[in-house]
């Protein structure tokens, strides 16, 4: 078991003929991911390493049974590509594209709300279920099969945390980067529910950033809905207000969204907070040792 990406996942890559799309498709195939099709409008009939390319997502669904989409489309066309995937009935859409305008995401989220699709991203490193497959940029070697679920708003910081776990011999069920944009397709809350239900996930790591209220919402949700132990780190304690720290969503606006506020909210919800990012792995190790003894947190 794992969440979202499992052995039934059949991936279509939107933007497969671009240099990023082609490169990361190869990496994910090497990792074991079942990539069944690609889509680039106007390039239907081509193939990338034997993977058939179609003009439309619906063709990939009807002819190859695609049920997961990985997006590497240019920012200007990404909202259109996501909505096409939703319309084609794709259940999981993971968008790596950086730089999608917020007004586009407002529209996409309206369509998502009336659909059965789930979306991760944009501007995210992707999702990995070790032993099953991966979508996105996460380096393959950092993962290991195991029992920790990891959700993060970052990219390389996510790799860092996963790698800390793996180096300590702690494997993961599924690792997800939800992306650094102001309006991500899925937020922490949307995914916590899935991890809580997954019998293989014994503990969770939640990596947040300054800006917005996603961590506070997660804290509120964890308080009454998550029985598994959660370890959390928030990046950007030293970031000055009013400056956008790389990610479009990472900005302390109007004095709200500081790391300290987020740490406080999470701590009040019973989350184990770790303020030293070099110690995330060790902290999870301690938590797992306790879970092993008592079986459960509560």
């Amino acid at each position: 078991m794992a969440i979202l990406l499992d052995k039934n996942s059949r991936v279509v890559v939107q933007g497969i003929t671009g240099s990023e799309g082609a490169f990361h498709t190869r990496e994910s195939v090497k990792f074991g991911t079942k990539v069944v099709a690609g889509v680039t409008p106007g390039k239907g009939g081509m193939d990338v390493d034997g993977i058939p390319v179609y003009n439309r997502v619906i063709d990939a669904v009807e002819q190859q049974g695609a049920n997961v989409s990985a997006l590497y489309t240019p920012a200007a066309f990404t909202a259109d590509a996501i909505i096409e995937a939703i319309e084609a009935g794709i259940g999981l859409i993971v968008a790596m594209t950086e730089g999608v305008p917020v007004t586009d995401m407002i529209k996409v989220k309206q369509v998502l709300k009336t659909s059965k699709s789930r979306m991760i991203g944009c501007n995210c490193p992707g999702i990995t279920t070790p032993g099953v497959g991966k979508i996105g940029f996460m380096p393959s070697f950092i993962h290991k099969v195991g029992n920790v679920g990891l959700i993060s708003r970052s990219g390389t910081l996510t790799y860092e945390a996963i790698w800390q776990l793996t180096c300590l011999g702690i494997g993961q069920t599924t690792s997800i980067g939800i992306g650094g944009d102001p309006l991500p397709g899925s937020n922490f809350v949307d995914l916590l529910e899935l991890y809580e239900k997954d019998p293989d996930t014994k503990a969770l790591v939640l990596i947040g950033e300054i800006g917005g209220t996603a961590e506070e919402e997660a804290a509120e949700y964890i308080k009454s809905n998550v029985s598994k132990p959660v370890v959390s780190f928030i990046a950007g304690r030293t970031a000055p207000p009013g400056r956008r720290m790389g990610h479009a969503g990472a900005i302390i606006a109007g004095g709200k969204g500081t790391a300290d506020e987020k740490f406080k909210a999470l701590e009040a919800a019973g989350v184990i907070i770790e303020k030293n990012p070099a110690e995330i792995g060790k902290r999870v190790q301690e938590v797992l040792a306790k879970v092993g003894k008592k079986g459960k947190k509560k």
Partner: peptide, 28 residues
Amino acid sequence: NGAGLAMTTMDLIKMAGGEPANFLDVGG
């Protein structure tokens, strides 16, 4: 490389008793 790790590096400098001169994400 990476915005989240860049913010984290600033936090670490401060934790170790220093003051960061900048945020710099050189790209993935």
